[in-house]
C-alpha cells in the first residue's frame, strides 16, 4: 500500500461535540434508570416507606436526564440549520433523488467493505458515511419518539405545561399502558445502537487511523489528501 498524506479537517463543530457527549451521557442514564423503573430490583423488603425514597430518586434521575436530553436535542436540531455541512440536516436526510442514490451506494459500499469485508481498502468520507447517516437519522427519530412518549407519560404527574403538550398521545396510541410498552421497547433500540456504534467507532479508528475517536472530542479528522 502506497504512502498517503493526510490533512486535518475540522468536521465536528463544538455544538455537535457537546451535544454528542451530553446525549451519550443522558442515554446512558436513561437506559439504566428506565430499565430499573421497568423492573425494579428487590433491593428492600424490610423498612418503612418513610425511611426511603430510592425508587423515587431513580425516577427523578430519569426525568432529569430526560429533560436535559430533550433540550440538548432541540439545540442539535437548531444546529442542523446553523452548522457546517457535516452537521446539517441534509447530512442525514438526502435532500434530493441524486443524494438518495449516492447515499444508497455509500451504504452498499460500507456494508461490502466494513461489515462483510469483501474489499480491503477503506473508502474515505469526511463527514459520516451513508450508513452512519442513516443510523443517526434512525436514532434521531427514536429520540423524538422517546421524548414524545416519555413526556406523555410524564404529563399526568406534573403541572408543568410542557409535557402537558403531549397529553394527546395516549388516546391516540390506545392508552397509557400501550405508550409505556412502546417507550420501554424503544429502550432496546438505544442499547443496540450504542453497542454497534461504539464498536464501529473503534473499528474505523483502528482500520483507517483517521482519528475517528478523537474527532468527536476535538472535532478534527484526518482526510487523505487527493
Amino acid at each position: 500500500m502506497a504512502e498517503a498524506t493526510y490533512e486535518r479537517v475540522y468536521v465536528w463543530q463544538a455544538p455537535v461535540r457537546m451535544y454528542h457527549w451530553i446525549n451519550a451521557c443522558c442515554i446512558f442514564v436513561l437506559v439504566a434508570t428506565g430499565l430499573v423503573i421497568g423492573r425494579p430490583p428487590a433491593l428492600m423488603s424490610a423498612g418503612e416507606a418513610s425511611d426511603s425514597h430510592w425508587f423515587g430518586w431513580v425516577r427523578f434521575l430519569h426525568f432529569s436526564a430526560a429533560f436535559l436530553m430533550s433540550f440538548a436535542f432541540l439545540v442539535r436540531v437548531y444546529w442542523m440549520f446553523a452548522g457546517n455541512q457535516y452537521s446539517r440536516w441534509d447530512a442525514f436526510i438526502p435532500r434530493n433523488w441524486t443524494r438518495l442514490k449516492t447515499q444508497w451506494r455509500e451504504m452498499v459500499n460500507v456494508l461490502r467493505i466494513d461489515i462483510l469485508q469483501l474489499e480491503k481498502e477503506p473508502i474515505d468520507y469526511v463527514g459520516h458515511n451513508g450508513l452512519a447517516a442513516f443510523s443517526y437519522f434512525g436514532i434521531f427519530l427514536a429520540t423524538i419518539f422517546q421524548i414524545i412518549t416519555g413526556a406523555a407519560l410524564y404529563a399526568p404527574m406534573s403541572t408543568f405545561w410542557l409535557p402537558g403538550l403531549f397529553s394527546w398521545v395516549p388516546p391516540l396510541m390506545g392508552g397509557e399502558a400501550i405508550v409505556r410498552m412502546w417507550h420501554h421497547a424503544f429502550t432496546w433500540i438505544f442499547i443496540l445502537f450504542t453497542m454497534i456504534h461504539v464498536y464501529l467507532s473503534i473499528f474505523h479508528d483502528m482500520t483507517e487511523g483517521r482519528g475517528e475517536i478523537s474527532s468527536i472530542v476535538n472535532g478534527v479528522r484526518f482526510v487523505e489528501r487527493k
Binding site: 423492573r39 469485508q117 420501554h184 429502550t187 443496540l192 453497542m195 464498536y199 482500520t207
Partner: peptide, 30 residues
C-alpha cells in the same frame, strides 16, 4: 420487550465479537 431486547443484544454482541475477530485477522495489514 425485555426478552426480545436481551436476545437481540446477545445476538448483536456475538456478531460484534465475531466481526472483531474476523477483522483483526483479515485486516491485520491495514
Amino acid at each position: 420487550a425485555d426478552k426480545i431486547g436481551v436476545a437481540a443484544g446477545v445476538v448483536t454482541a456475538a456478531g460484534l465479537v465475531g466481526h472483531a475477530v474476523l477483522t483483526s485477522i483479515r485486516k491485520r495489514d491495514v
